[in-house]
Design a protein around this nucleic acid. Structure first.
Length: 887
RNA sequence: GGGCGGGUAGCUCAGUUGGGAGAGCGCCACGUUUACACCGUGGAUGUCACAGGUUCAAGUCCUGUUCCGCCUACCA
């Protein structure tokens, strides 16, 4: 066998890029459009084209990669579809900032040239995040990369728009929408973030137009009074019974406005009278529609007061508020002003306070779409993990409101609507029309607005597969198998994909959705630049390697919990990677004289510990498979960690050392080598989805030429590896070893001091077990002599006593006898035991327990009681002998 | 206002048919044994938020209280 050295410590740097290139070069990430293999597909949540990899992306994509690699190894035709989102507002902002550096605005460039600039920017900087995903090890089918502004995806957008329009599910209208005065566009309800902020509540008196007195209204936005067109009270409010229908004078503006009655008005709040500004408040807008009240628009797109604001024209909303309040004070209209905390809506993108404004916008009528989307989840066509999110999904879908899809920006899918200047016809078409179909006029003007970015994202699961063409990819991979995303975009994206998928494809976009939590810092705070608590995933990869980083993310992804990330934990798993590396190195060093294929699988070729570790491996496979199928990433990670570190390294490798070193001829060295290699190889397979790099490196150093690990078959449960007999026998042997180690540790006896041990074993079966395990015990417990006897009557003197099940363990303490120490040790154990025994006895003494508890449970308790009693007798005897010695 | 999640060892958290309170890190002791000190062996630590209830048996099920986090909502 060719000699291949492994370094003492594992260094991820070169190895990771080497293998990633290898994977790419061999096309292992590629899925087949047509295949006999069963398909498994995931579409990536497309990151913003402006995005840089942060912890959220890292978590999201590592989880997807683990699943897709797992499925690929299981033999599926696995597709992970990559791509990016054009991120309308965000990208436009970035490029506008760039222009500002040059001293120009997009308006200086004009629409066409500005769009060109954005494309240039995209080509130059746009792909960064996808490069970063490669550093993580993501096994996307990169040749299929898509972008929401691609020609194909744009065609899909137009097609869907036209269909929805023709089905009367898209309409245009003058409504009040959330307007961002900084981004200069409408945004959807979802894109407004509400935060509790300190503000004020102003009480303003509106005098009656005729007669004495007036009505006092309370408002958080006094400046909007310039646009008031009514005052409203509750129809059942006794206080205002007689004023309904009268008129008041709007202060500062000096105009008469009516007092109306509407159930919306709360009797309890403020004065029970509310000013109505239909152009500045969504509720007022609705009320105005109900009562056919006028509307006065007082602000422009910059939230600056317009010509309808009289003397306040030209002032922005903040300045105007100050001045209005001052003027009200002067005029004696301001009754009271008090601090008040309330919810303020801000633009999710730039955090500017949203100005509700009336404008002409396009909307999707979502109720009918939502209905189908709800029933798909009810029927289980799409399953949501963890299931608690189903409730949230239903709740939102049931209360859904129409979706404002038009944006007054330039970067995005321009709405496929044209207006004929000659006859006024509205043309909605997938292809740019050359002339008006009604009057054949040629002066057509396209709608200026573009679509919400989420509109194109909603089509992602089928648009990326080639729709509207009938492609093989679509046929093979739609509906996709799984969607993995953060719960924070359940409404933004998941819900809308459900609606669009069902509307367009008549089938759900994905069969399962796994919603993961957010990554926070170790204190549980959201990571943000302003807090300075960001941990950069790329730094972590650089420092600890992608494998360790990936494993950390998986290990902390418990369902429904936030992922609290800290560097210490990554370091902890970095140690694990090193442990794996060194275990492999050990195996490797002991395979020099190994020749595969020389060993029959007959049981006699394998020792009890060989059989034991294979049983444990088989268990691990079963558990891991189950956990991954249920998206229990943390459990999966913990299971493989435990197997490799504790079962394989701590026990098995230690057990076979003497065999490998030729010090123990009673067990087959070849059998140990064979088992060691087989278990190591299987472990690498199990670990490969989590740690694709180090496992691949180890794999290629091991004997055998089986190609790449990442496409080798994932282990499945194998009944032939089950071995209860070996598990039972090893249980006894390990228990004895642990007992002796326990005594050594508690008595502070250094490992270099070889011990003499006597075992008192009550029955023949146990004796045979102990005899076969004698070498193991001598080696792992570091003994110089081990004698095994049947049940002995006369206990030896000068020993420390331990109990391993039915076996009594006597450790001779010649010369180092510390009677007081041993007494203390035994008494400690005795008190634990007594407490335990008391609990068990109490249970068994209870008649109801014996009658009502299941037989299995009662038997278990009885057995426990018996064992504890026996132990107690032994300890008692040992103690009394020590007391005599001492005395 | 409504909803959801959480309060378990010093820290971060597991604990899925109710029947042994666990892991990792940290801590203490011993140790350099031909894979690994990025290591090994052993050890200590808990009114499972609180109060009731169901049950032979509750961290686990039910009710209430409290604290924290998140989502959602048109109360000016």
């Amino acid at each position: 066998m060719e000699k291949k050295e492994l370094n003492k410590g594992y260094d991820p740097h070169e190895i990771e890029s080497k293998w990633y290139q290898y994977f790419l070069g061999h096309g292992f990430f590629k899925a087949e459009d047509k295949s006999k293999k069963e398909a498994f597909s995931i579409v990536i949540p497309p990151p913003n084209v402006t995005g840089m990899l942060h912890m959220g992306h890292a978590l999201n994509n590592v989880l997807q990669d683990i699943i897709i690699r797992y499925k690929r190894m299981q033999g599926y035709n696995a597709l992970w579809m990559p791509g990016m989102d054009h991120a309308g507002i965000a990208t436009q902002n970035v490029v506008e900032k760039e222009l500002a550096g040059e001293g120009i605005t997009r308006h200086d460039l004009g629409r066409e040239r500005f769009i060109e600039r954005v494309w240039q920017w995209k080509e130059k900087y746009g792909g960064i995040i996808l490069t970063q995903l490669r550093k993580l090890g993501c096994s996307c089918d990169w040749d299929r990369e898509r972008f929401t502004m691609d020609e194909g995806l744009s065609r899909a957008v137009r097609e869907v728009f036209v269909r929805l329009y023709n089905d009367n599910l898209i309409y245009q209208g003058n409504y009040i929408v959330n307007w961002c005065p900084r981004c200069h566009t409408a945004i959807s309800d979802l894109e407004v973030e509400y935060t509790e902020e300190n503000g004020g509540l102003w009480y303003i008196k509106y005098p009656f137009a005729e007669g004495e007195g007036g009505v006092i209204v309370a408002t958080t936005r006094p400046e909007t009074m310039l646009g008031d067109t009514a005052v409203a009270v509750n129809p059942h409010d006794e206080r205002y019974k007689d004023v309904i229908g009268r008129e008041v004078i709007l202060p500062l503006v000096n105009k008469k406005i009516p007092i109306i009655a509407d159930d919306y008005v709360s009797v309890e709040f403020g004065t029970g009278a509310v000013k109505i500004t239909p152009s500045c408040d969504p509720n007022d807008f609705e009320m105005a529609q109900r009562h056919d009240i006028d509307m006065v628009i007082i602000m422009d797109g910059n939230a600056v007061i317009n010509e309808n604001g009289g003397v306040y024209q030209g002032q922005d909303r903040d300045m105007c508020r100050k001045n209005v309040v001052n003027d009200l004070k002067k005029g004696g209209y301001l009754i009271e002003e008090k601090p008040y905390t309330h919810n303020v809506g801000r633009c999710y993108r730039c955090k500017t306070i949203i100005e509700p404004a009336v404008s002409k916008q396009w909307f999707v009528k979502v109720k009918p779409l939502a209905k189908t989307a709800i029933s798909a989840v009810v029927k289980g066509k799409t399953k949501i993990f963890p299931s608690m999110w189903e409730g949230t999904y239903f709740d939102w879908m049931n209360n859904i409101r129409d979706w404002c899809i038009s944006r007054q920006i330039w970067w995005g899918h321009r709405i496929p609507v044209w207006y004929c200047s000659d006859c006024g016809k509205v043309i909605v078409a997938t292809e740019d029309p050359k002339e008006c179909p009604a009057c054949s006029g040629s002066s057509l003007r396209q709608e200026e607005d573009v679509l919400d970015t989420w509109f194109s994202s909603a089509l992602w699961p089928f648009s990326t597969l080639g729709w509207p063409d009938k492609t093989d990819a679509l046929k093979t991979f739609y509906p996709t198998s799984l969607l993995v995303t953060g719960f924070d975009i359940l409404f933004f994206w998941v819900a809308r994909m459900m609606m669009m998928g069902l509307y367009v494809m008549k089938d759900v976009p994905f069969k399962e959705v796994y919603l993961h939590a957010l990554v926070r810092d170790e204190k549980g705070d959201k990571m943000s630049k302003s807090k300075g608590n960001i941990i950069d995933p790329l730094d972590m990869i650089d420092k600890y390697g992608a494998d360790a980083f990936r494993f950390t993310l998986a290990a902390f992804t418990a369902q429904g919990r936030d992922v609290k990330m800290s560097e210490d934990r990554i370091q902890g798993y970095r140690f694990f990677v090193n442990k794996i590396w060194n275990a492999a190195r050990f195996c490797f060093m002991n395979l020099e004289d190994y020749h595969e294929g020389e060993l029959s699988p007959d049981a006699e070729n394998y020792s009890v510990c060989d059989r034991w570790i294979k049983d444990r491996l088989n268990h691990t496979v079963a558990d891991l498979t189950r956990f991954l199928n249920e998206y229990r990433f943390n459990d999966a990670a913990a299971r493989i960690y435990y197997f490799i570190w504790h079962e394989f390294c701590d026990w098995y490798l230690e057990l076979i050392k003497p065999v490998l070193y030729g010090k123990n001829s009673s067990h087959s060295k070849l059998g140990a080598q064979h088992t060691m290699l087989m278990v190591l190889k299987s472990s690498m397979k199990l670990l490969s989805p989590f740690m694709p790099f180090v496992t691949e490196e180890i794999w290629h150093k091991l004997p055998g030429d089986e190609g790449s690990l990442m496409i080798s078959p994932f282990p499945s449960e194998d009944d032939s590896l089950k071995d209860e007999e070996a598990v039972k026998r090893m249980g006894v042997i390990m228990d004895v070893i642990t007992r002796i180690r326990n005594i050594r540790g508690e008595m502070n006896i250094p490992p270099s001091k070889k011990l003499k041990v006597l075992l008192s074993v009550p029955d023949d079966e146990l004796i045979s077990i102990v005899i076969t395990g004698k070498d193991y015990i001598i080696d792992l417990a570091k003994l110089r002599e081990l004698s095994v006897k049947g049940e002995i009557k006369e206990e030896p003197k000068g020993v420390a006593t331990g109990i391993a099940g039915a076996i009594k363990v006597y450790v001779f303490l010649e010369g180092m006898i510390d009677i007081a120490g041993e007494i203390a040790r035994l008494e400690k154990e005795m008190s634990k035991l007594t407490k335990n025994l008391a609990m068990v006895s109490k249970k068994l003494a209870n008649q109801e327990f014996r009658e009502k508890a299941s037989e299995k449970v009662v038997e278990k308790e009885k057995l426990k009681s018996k064992e504890l009693q026996e132990k107690s007798v032994i300890l008692e005897r040992a103690l009394s002998r020590l007391h005599i010695l001492e005395g």
